[in-house]
Nucleic acid binder design. Structure first.
Lengths: 200, 200, 200, 200
DNA sequence: TATGAATGAGGGTTCATTCAT
DNA sequence: CATGAATGAACCCTCATTCAT
């Protein structure tokens, strides 16, 4: 890789990191491209060499960051050595919720305008080489569970949306209950959902 | 009520109706105050006599429109004469989902930036005199169910967020499944949730 | 007329005059809206209250200025008391050419991107009340000439384009001959054209 | 010619052709250097090895294309074997008008910002070796006509500007008359002009 | 109350030109 | 010779908000 290519990659990284910082601290709407390039220390035109607009860079970041988060959660659950499938899912859920609670900026950034479509795309089409496909890991866990499931993807969809929506409210507004209060409720609900989908 | 007061009320109504039309058709971000006043046929300054800014008028509308929607759903469930509590809840859920599916503009308007906090406020502090307090109706249904429930408000919260989040994805993007496919999944899941909260 | 209306009219006038000055001195392309508003002493937004864009203000100016020029030429020819129709036309032609030679900025402003369509519109649909319809004056001169003409509008078209195009080259570049050298050539040519259209 | 030289020449040709395509289709102002180099498949910097800027390449193209057009017209008139000088001129005029009508992009490209100065330079200083000097051909036709003319260059100037200006309006806007309607008017007018310059 | 002209900061975007490779 | 990433000034335009009438 030549000097130019290195420089190019550095600029791209800088823009991505700076954008992420600003999006998670100020929010997407209040972050202007001027803000980004100023903080990144590049010229305005440079931004447009790498991204179509603000929403382009956002989508790339959402994909990357969600993938990263879920992969971390999966890695953690592997180290935990939970036996049961439902315990694994609850563990991952709690892991993700704790991570988002620790980084509210990330939460509001990932959550806003986020549809299952985008989310799934993020989790299945990793941006970086280092990113892994979370859906594959999910199917692996299903396989290892010893159970058969009907509509496993719908089960995941319902669980994720449930956790996402309630977690958002608890973390951001502590309303109607705090995250710590919410967790047992969610654990129970998610387990119920899973049971509904087991083919006995 | 004098002529001046009537005129004043008429202007307010016009602004609210016009805003709602524009928010649900063009979206909040793409609707400017200029758009609103032009379509409403009032002067720009007049807007500021009634509202602080765009977000002020939006909040009032969300409160009013959600309250209206849930009250309609409740009225419908009363006419249906469902016996079981859980059937009533499922009916209301389906009613609301159908109404939102029929008016995607309303859905995206109500849903965006909508937290449980705003939602609850909307449902419990009616704007108009005609609006009723949905939470009261909920407690009434609980009473009539013949069961005892623990944490009934959390139960409502979890159910609503679940239905809202998954419904949004299905209605707006048909992804991962259509609304009609989603409904039975939701019915079953909501029933499971309710069972979890019954004190036997 | 209230104070506000006076102010409004003054702003419009200032913008028109300033734009004309800049267009004729720097040219259309090199004049930015920023230049205009800065020199006019109004805010940028104000420009957009009165004009759609740069080309809107240009079209209004072209119409007004050409109308003005031709009306002046006509007034002058009346004071001259030429007898013959063709002498009147040659007089008007020379008058206009001299005016444009004295104001090259005006020439390049009026001439560039100017089609007969725009020109005719300018001459027949006066912007100001004070402006008169040159085409009417032309027909009046035809009437008074004592001759009958075939296709009088084509005759005007051909003559005008001829004078405009050759005059532009002579005035702006002195090439291939100076304006003073050009005039007798044009006089003779225009008279030939007129003779071609007289129905004997 | 070495391989390097061939490559160099190929790049130059590609840039000229691409520019011409873009200028005649999108117009000069809307064509950026980025557009040109992208479509030509060369690097941005390469453009500046061959041309000073957009206007440099435009001028070279105008010269080349006008020369080409007039030479073609002359070749055609030779094949026609018209006898009279004025018939030859009218033929050339019609030939050029038809060619421009068939390629409006070329017309607006050649016509805009085109002065007699540029035009004459184009016709007398051929860019390519293949290009011929149209003014020479003109004098040859004068010689062969059997007449003597005063100010033959002014005669050409006046005729060309007349045909150019009226033709532009007819071809581009069909206003005030179509090209086909215009042609007989121009033929008669041009013949009158020629007669004015014959020394009897 | 009601008006709507005026504001001007700030937004996104383009593009000719340079220069290290 | 050729590249193309980087520049950054300059552009047009929007819009929430104010305030004299």
């Amino acid at each position: 890789m030549g000097k130019a290519d290195q420089n190019k990659k550095a600029k791209l990284e800088k823009l991505l990191n700076t954008s992420f910082d600003l999006f998670t601290s100020k929010g997407l709407n209040k972050t202007s491209i001027s803000d980004i390039v100023e903080k990144a220390g590049v010229a305005k035109g440079t931004f447009y060499l790498y991204f179509k607009d603000k929403y382009d860079i956002r989508n790339r970041l959402i994909a990357h960051k969600s993938s990263q988060l879920f992969t971390q959660a999966y890695d953690a659950v592997c180290r935990e050595n939970c036996e049961e499938f439902e315990d694994k899912i609850v563990f991952i859920m709690n892991y993700v919720l704790d991570a988002l609670a620790a980084n509210k900026g990330l939460l509001s950034f990932i959550y806003k305008d986020l549809s299952w479509a985008v989310f799934k795309k993020a989790l299945t089409t990793p941006v970086n080489n280092s990113d892994t496909d979370f859906l594959e890991l999910y199917y692996k866990m299903l396989d290892e569970s010893g159970h058969k499931f009907r509509d496993p993807e719908v089960m995941l969809f319902i669980s994720m949306e449930l956790v996402g929506a309630t977690g958002y409210s608890s973390i951001m507004y502590n309303d109607p209950i705090s995250l710590d209060e919410l967790k047992p409720h969610l654990a129970q609900t998610v387990k119920s959902i899973i049971h509904n989908y087991i083919i006995s």
